[in-house]
């Protein structure tokens, strides 16, 4: 269940790089998830909804699949 760690890493990265500045709610996150990334999409979705961070409570994850091992955030939709 390392998806919790991955979700926390994503939030940290977005926070540290200013993407969450002034954001009240993140509506969706578009991610590129590689076939060999070791990520279970359902667990990642579950992790975001249980982060104890109200901004991500209702976030919808959109996955794009690739044949690599990358986990890349493409874009977020935020209020």
């Amino acid at each position: 269940m390392h998806e919790f760690s991955v979700a926390l890493e994503i939030v940290d990265m977005l926070q540290e790089n200013g993407y969450l500045s002034g954001v009240r709610k993140v509506n969706s996150i578009k991610l590129n998830i590689g076939k060999y990334s070791g990520i279970d999409e359902n667990y990642l979705d579950f992790a975001f909804k249980n982060l104890n961070d109200e901004r991500f409570k209702d976030v919808l994850l959109e996955f794009i699949h690739s044949g690599s091992d990358e986990i890349k955030i493409i874009e977020i939709l935020a209020d």
Binding site: E9, M13, N17, Y19, L31, I73, E75, I76, L77
Partner: peptide
């Protein structure tokens, strides 16, 4: 109207 689309294009595990 439904929010701002912010292009990120970064490794999700960048901090790691």
């Amino acid at each position: 109207s439904s929010g701002r689309v912010l292009s990120v294009q970064r490794n999700a595990l960048e901090s790691n």
